[in-house]
Amino acid sequence: MSIQLHEENGGTMIVVQVSGKLVKADYEHFVPEFERLVQAHGKLRLLFDMAGFHGWELSAAWEDLKFGVKHFDDIERLAMVGEKKWQQGMARFCKPFTKAQVRYFDHSDAAEARKWLEQANGTD
């Protein structure tokens, strides 16, 4: 249904909010904006907020896979914030598809996710 992203802390953190069920058209807007941010800031630290997220249509899942392959090395840290067991499983599933440090946080721990993203490299 939608992917929204915005910069925080002068571009040091990018918040990506997904909601509903994603469709292929959602990626037509998201991917160019993400690529603009990579060009502007280099490797990104992402807070991926999945509150209200219900998954992908098949064509959107394919777009997501292509996005992951293309941007394998563009994310430094990825904090996945969710509210459902399958979303926690997504965090484990995506680790082999990125060089990013990936951690899952329950939605009630969103402030902790932000702190983790702001930490210096090499600390966990």
Rank of each mutant, 00 (worst) to 15 (best):
A120K: 05
V38Q: 07
L65D: 09
D49Q: 05
T12G: 09
W86V: 05
P32K: 00
S19R: 13
E57Q: 12
G10A: 01
L47I: 03
Q87P: 05
L22H: 06
K21D: 00
Q17L: 03
V18G: 12
G122Q: 06
E28M: 15
R77G: 06
P96E: 01
M1P: 09
E83R: 03
H107D: 13
K99M: 10
Q88E: 14
A113C: 10
G122P: 10
V38N: 02
A51W: 15
D124I: 08
V81C: 13
L44F: 08
L37W: 02
E83T: 05
K66I: 03
W56M: 02
S2K: 14
K24A: 15
K70C: 03
K66T: 11
M90Y: 14
K95I: 14
A113R: 01
Q101H: 15
E118F: 11
D73A: 04
A111Q: 01
A111E: 09
Q17Y: 05
V102S: 10
I3M: 15
G122Y: 08
Q87M: 11
M13K: 10
L47S: 00
G89E: 01
E7Y: 11
V16W: 08
V18W: 15
H54V: 04
L65E: 11
E63H: 06
T98H: 12
R92P: 01
D106G: 04
H54P: 00
D64L: 09
L46K: 06
T98P: 02
M1S: 09
R36L: 12
H6A: 14
F53P: 00
L58Y: 07
M1G: 02
A120Y: 08
R36H: 04
V15G: 03
L78W: 13
R103H: 14
D109S: 11
E76W: 00
W116C: 09
M50L: 15
S59V: 01
A61Y: 14
G11R: 11
F30R: 05
L65I: 14
A110V: 15
T12M: 15
D106L: 01
M1F: 08
V15R: 07
P32T: 00
C94W: 14
R36I: 00
Q119A: 05
I3F: 10
V102Y: 13
F67L: 02
G89H: 09
T98L: 12
I75A: 07
F105N: 02
S2R: 15
G68P: 05
Q101I: 08
K95Y: 10
V23C: 00
K99G: 07
L58P: 04
R77Y: 09
G89T: 02
K95T: 11
M50Y: 13
V15E: 12
K95L: 06
E63N: 06
V81E: 14
F97Y: 15
Y27R: 08
E76M: 05
D74L: 05
F97C: 05
K95F: 14
L58G: 08
T12P: 09
G89C: 02
A79S: 10
V16P: 05
E83P: 08
K24E: 13
L5I: 03
S2W: 15
Q39Y: 06
K24I: 03
F105E: 04
M1I: 01
L22K: 04
Q4Y: 14
M50K: 12
R114Y: 03
Q119M: 09
E7T: 02
W116R: 09
S19N: 14
